[in-house]
Write a protein that binds this DNA or RNA. Structure first.
Lengths: 228, 228
DNA sequence: CTGACACTACGGCGGTGGCCGAAGCGTCCA
DNA sequence: TGGACGCTTCGGCCACCGCCGTAGTGTCAG
């Protein structure tokens, strides 16, 4: 029973629109300053500061001071996965309005899901990896095949480092726009990082949405056979 | 952004202590009547009824009428997994008080986690299955080996049915008391169901905690080498 | 038909918490 | 060193929502 109260406390932290906006912005995977989060939250700086304090007290976000800025980020992978879980429930419910805005369109095409890719990009990459037999991903969990290990190494992804880290190595992550699983876990994160390192994709300002560079368009097509 | 608002709405539903108590009670896996949930919620019947209405509107719980009773249950597996995700974040945080009550002790020993086993029982069974090589379960996800398939069939678990159902087949579920993974997914659910069918365990009244029958004590020891 | 029971709808009360304006710290720059 | 900037703290306002008492609907039992 005492644990239930804690559950309510954590959920209540997410249950405020301004705080939900903040957390959603931080799900982009980058650490953001309080000022940037003010814009995301949609309320005044004072109010935002209060929300940030509450979220930090509740250990949902962490803060590092840097000069006169304070950078906030999602505290742990557990928190990120919890938020994804809530998103998945939301996606289950029937849509109430047609969203269909421009930024939504970009989000649908390509975005980060904390530290890996989602949207059409994430699902497309995942489908390609599965089709080549590099990754076996289903509702059952995930596995990287021997040929997949070779492929990732050749592509420049450090699988050993991904395997060594303490979090889940390979797992499906339900996509709230595509409603299908895409590659998550540390493998998904490493793959995304490699694509960023290759300058295939750029993060959009203050959004989880991504834009494809010309090199990325070519690379994704040649390497994965994916075109958006 | 519109999705973030929905996220806040869902989280806010969980973010009330009375509603969190209700959801936690329903995480026992049984459908419960409104009266039973009144006791779980810790508020008056009228207030509880209001909470049940809100949770049903938000599609977190579902209701079936039966005579003059109304039975409520968790609406979908997604919802159950979301709640587990929140629990996992709560378990991450440092404990604030020593709980150590009697019912808590029973919960720690053996309980249901929506539809599979958790607590010392869940972790013990999982450890035994892993030690025999029947299941490979780690942070990476889960897999049932060939010998595991044979073992489950011999034990009376219908793996084909479990595999056929739409949800995740085999996955780790973080235990908020043991802080280690235990067997979840449809395999975990099927294993738990089989143990109930064998009358090895009984559900305690209005609690997620389980009591071990003499047959269960013997069976768990002989079949899995597990003693609580 | 009558009373008991399970549950829900309505209405008013009260407290929590989100909100902003004003002001206060700390940092950077000229 | 003065000022701009980033961010937080304080204080007061107000709305929302959880709460319960009362009353209503539907169901079963005798």
């Amino acid at each position: 029973m005492t644990a239930d109260v804690r559950m309510a406390e954590v959920a209540a932290l997410v249950g405020d629109p301004a705080r939900a906006n903040i957390l959603a912005a931080l799900m982009g995977g980058r650490a953001l300053t309080a000022s940037e989060l003010v814009r995301a939250a949609g309320v005044s700086p004072q109010t935002t500061s209060g929300h940030l304090g509450k979220l930090a007290d509740g250990r949902l976000i962490a803060c590092v001071k840097q000069g006169r800025h304070r950078y906030y980020r999602i505290a742990t992978h557990r928190v990120a996965e919890m938020l994804e879980g809530i998103m998945a429930v939301v996606a289950d419910a029937p849509p109430r309005h047609r969203p269909a805005s421009k930024v939504d369109e970009a989000m649908r095409t390509a975005r980060t899901c904390y530290d890996h890719f989602a949207g059409k990009l994430g699902v497309g990459l995942t489908d390609a990896l599965c089709a080549h037999g590099y990754v076996a991903l289903s509702e059952e969990g995930g596995e990287v095949s021997d040929s997949g290990v070779a492929f990732f190494e050749k592509f420049g992804v450090d699988l050993a480092a991904a395997r060594g880290c303490s979090r889940i190595f390979c797992r499906p992550c339900i996509d709230w726009t595509e409603r299908r699983p895409h590659l998550g876990g540390s493998v998904g994160a490493a793959l995304a990082q490699r694509c960023f390192d290759l300058d295939w994709l750029k993060r959009m300002r203050e959004s989880r949405a991504l834009t494809l560079t010309p090199a990325g368009r070519r690379g994704l097509s040649e390497t994965f056979g994916v075109s958006l």
